[in-house]
């Protein structure tokens, strides 16, 4: 069975799937060949379209993350505006009280506004927090294996482009974790992309990536993305999760920082370690669905 680009009767070149089967006599000698050529040009095109749609979806995921980030930063930038009102009102209040005679009614009114704007400013901060990590009430039981498989499916194109070979070791009967599914998927996607990026320049060894899920103590589930990439300097271990720290020429250095803040808001932990051989491994642990489960005591290599 072979796929080949052949010239059709009308002169057009199209993709064909060709199968050839011999017809043998009782002695086993070939008497005839049966051959069939199926025109698979349309199927090929559809496959190509699916691939490009997947790429676009992954890009949209990125844009979405960046969009949320931009929105939250815009909120933060706006915050000084209401702070400005607070300070002006408080100043006015003092001036009114210092006047002779003091303007008590005016002072009372500006003090009221000061309190109102203070509440407004704290609302803004709350909204930014809510963007990065939902309050506990919004968390739901998430199957981390299932969520990870979805991200892997989305990343297929990326694996093909980077010639990365993926192995998954997803633990069976993994307990559900307490979390925000989309945010956890963003973290996994970020780890997979980092691992791919770390391997892009590797030429002397297979570009192997291993994604593992397993139990971590009684109260947590751990996910690890291990790569055979360029790794990182031992000294930079402390800075890997800092915002705007990056070892990539095109990175902004916010992926890991946001990832860690998402994991911490889930009551979990995130860390990195160098492999014995080439490459590195990034892991996070998040609490399972259980009352008061925490990952504070989870095994974290120093």
């Amino acid at each position: 069975m072979v796929e080949a680009r052949l010239r059709r009767f009308d002169g057009a070149y199209r993709w064909f799937l060709c199968r050839t089967v011999p017809l043998r006599n009782e002695a086993g000698a070939i008497v005839k060949w049966f051959s069939v050529s199926i025109d698979i040009e349309d199927r090929k095109r559809t496959e190509e379209e699916i691939r490009s749609t997947q790429t676009k979806l992954a890009q949209m995921g990125h844009v979405l993350t960046m969009g949320q980030l931009t929105a939250s930063i815009a909120h933060e930038v706006n915050q000084p505006l209401s702070v400005s009102g607070i300070i002006t009102n408080a100043n006015t209040c003092l001036h009114m009280l210092a006047a002779n005679p003091p303007n008590v009614e005016g002072a009372r009114e500006t003090a009221r506004r000061t309190i109102r704007d203070g509440h407004r400013a704290s609302e803004v901060v709350k909204r930014v927090r809510a963007l990065f990590g939902k309050e506990n009430a919004a968390l739901e039981p998430v199957d981390l294996n299932e969520a990870t498989r979805e991200v892997i499916a989305l990343s297929r194109v990326r694996f093909q482009e980077t010639h990365a070979v993926l192995r998954t070791e997803l633990a069976e009967e993994l307990p559900l974790v307490n979390g925000d599914r989309v945010q956890l998927q963003q973290v996994v996607l970020n780890l997979i992309q980092n691992a791919s990026d770390a391997m892009i320049s590797v030429r002397d060894r297979p570009r192997r990536m291993v994604i593992t899920t397993e139990r971590d103590g009684n109260e947590c589930v751990r996910l690890t993305v291990q790569d055979a990439g360029v790794g990182f300097e031992r000294e930079s271990l402390q800075r890997l999760f800092d915002a705007f720290y990056t070892t990539k020429s095109e990175g902004m250095g916010i992926g890991l920082s946001i990832s860690r803040s998402i994991i911490e808001r889930h009551g979990g932990r995130m860390w990195a370690a160098l492999n014995e051989g080439p490459g590195a491994a990034f892991s996070f642990s998040v609490p399972i669905v259980a009352k008061d489960a925490t990952c504070a005591g989870a095994a974290v290599p120093s």
């Binding site: 209401s82 009102g85 100043n91």
Partner: peptide, 16 residues
């Protein structure tokens, strides 16, 4: 365009 400034600043300027 910030309402809290339009509300607070005039009072302070009036005090001045």
């Amino acid at each position: 365009d910030d309402e809290s400034v339009r509300e607070s600043l005039p009072d302070l300027l009036a005090e001045f």
